[in-house]
Design a protein around this nucleic acid. Structure first.
Length: 283
DNA sequence: CAGTTCGCCTGGGGGC
DNA sequence: TGCCCCCAGGCGAACT
């Protein structure tokens, strides 16, 4: 469930470790991982490429290579692991740790980069390099990033003022605002004092200003903390974030930290949702 | 177009 | 202990 803060930390890790490194050979063992090319072509086309630069849009990772652009989405459980050499890679427990490795990239310096994903939801796409990575097909339907200063509360207010969908669904709609997932959507609405069930068309411009302020504060703070490590999410080897300790409502069964009312667990748009019925007003 | 449902996947937990 | 069923959840496809 990496959301923008977790993805940003993955990118920082990859950038630190991989910038300038060269992919000597690539092996994909789960064909479904490559979403836009046959496996053989992916493996062939990426060989010999160097990692040049790393970018994030919403929950997507974009890696510029020499002649190609690589786009990765980790979805629920995708992880990149780096081993210092083949011996270290072969020393892992094949059942416990090796079972869900679906891609292996042998680097020219002897290291091995692996992609591991228990549930096989993540995807990699490889494209011929474009001038502006933002125009890549994989990102076609992705809206502006939640932390993009040019995305204003007013823009969102105008776009959704006629929509009946609950505000939580809107925050999870990556074509409108990118990077927010289930955890941070709950946290953002708690901080903004708005019920996740509120119809988007009932929100005022002021409500949207509260939501955007909360979104930016929470996402930036979570990034600073290395993201949240809940359930299975972590990155690299032994890297873990700490923002899960600062969550105020998501997964917090029991009393609301602000008012003592019982936190409610319910479903909004098919997703598990936590909120405080007293602190969060239904509009 | 907006909104809803389903399928993709696997491990873990509850019930019996 | 073991089996069955359900759940987690991002996203795209297919539907109303």
């Amino acid at each position: 469930m990496p959301e923008a803060p977790e993805v940003q930390n993955v990118i920082a890790y990859l950038q630190e470790e991989l910038t300038g490194a060269m992919i000597e050979k690539c092996m994909i063992t789960y064909p479904g991982l490559c979403s836009n090319l046959p496996v053989e072509q992916f493996e062939h086309d990426i060989a010999g490429e160097h990692f040049r630069s790393f970018h994030r849009l919403g929950k997507y990772i974009v890696i510029e290579l020499d002649d190609k652009d690589l786009v990765s989405h980790l979805r629920m459980e995708g992880k990149f692991l780096i081993f210092k050499n083949r011996a270290a890679f072969e020393a892992i427990d094949p059942i416990k740790d090796g079972k869900h490795i679906h891609a292996e990239f042998d680097l020219s310096d002897g290291r091995i980069l692996c992609y591991r994903d228990t549930r096989k939801f993540g995807r990699l796409s490889l494209y011929e390099k474009v001038k502006d990575w933002r125009t890549l097909p994989a990102l076609e339907k992705v809206g502006k990033d939640a932390l993009d200063e040019s995305l204003s509360a007013k823009d969102l207010f105008e776009v959704v003022k006629k929509r009946k969908a609950p505000i939580k669904n809107i925050l999870l709609d990556q074509s409108l605002i990118a990077g927010i997932g289930n955890i941070y959507a709950d946290e953002i609405l708690f901080e903004a004092g708005i019920s996740p069930k509120s119809a988007a068309c009932h929100l005022s411009l002021e409500d949207w200003q509260h939501i955007m302020n909360a979104a930016r504060r929470i996402l930036a703070e979570a990034m600073r903390c290395g993201g949240s490590t809940i359930r299975s999410f972590s990155y690299g080897t032994g890297h873990a974030g700490s923002y899960q300790d600062q969550l105020k409502v998501h997964g917090k069964e029991g009393k609301c930290q602000n008012c003592g009312t019982d936190v409610v667990y319910t479903r909004v748009g098919q997703r598990g949702t936590w909120y405080c019925p007293k602190c969060q007003i239904e509009k």
